[in-house]
Design a protein around this nucleic acid. Structure first.
Lengths: 71, 71
DNA sequence: TACATTTATACCCAAACGAGTATAAACCAA
DNA sequence: TTGGTTTATACTCGTTTGGGTATAAATGTA
């Protein structure tokens, strides 16, 4: 499970569109798109700003061990 | 446990200095400092670049539930 | 204390992000 | 297929990151 997929699924299951999520999270629409598109060079605080809506946050350890997880 | 503390502890326990970690991770010294200082607006890919040295990565779900964890 | 090492703060600058907007593409139902 | 909604791509631009460097502060040891 990637971060992008996680966000996308959460958004869908909440019945939100990208513009709606962007507004609720207080970020730009472009950011949501980049995020769901799997762009890696995103700012951590913005990512957390979005995750917070779903009760999660990156930047809290422990993290997942990196064993070449795919997709 | 914050991301910054996690990195710092990992670095210490590995016996590395900030400049050494920066070089090993392929990022700038400034980045390592910002990271360990708890700066939030860091780029996700750079953070992962550092975490990878320790076998971890951010941006893999599931994450930690955000319940006002402190420090 | 004094000294050496490590870490923190400050400055400058090129590069990249993030926002806004517009347009094209994809999706889905009728 | 058609039409309407949602999502993806492209462009421009102000702001900020990240690197490099220099200097100050902190830490640890004798």
């Amino acid at each position: 499970m990637t971060l992008s997929k996680f966000i996308k699924e959460k958004r869908k299951s909440t019945g939100l569109t990208q513009p709606e999520l962007a507004e609720k999270a207080g970020v730009g629409l472009r950011f949501i798109r980049d995020l769901e598109q799997g762009k890696e060079s995103l700012r951590l605080d913005k990512v957390n700003q979005v995750l917070k809506l779903f009760g999660f946050k990156v930047g809290a350890i422990p993290l997942i061990k990196d064993e070449n997880e795919k997709s």
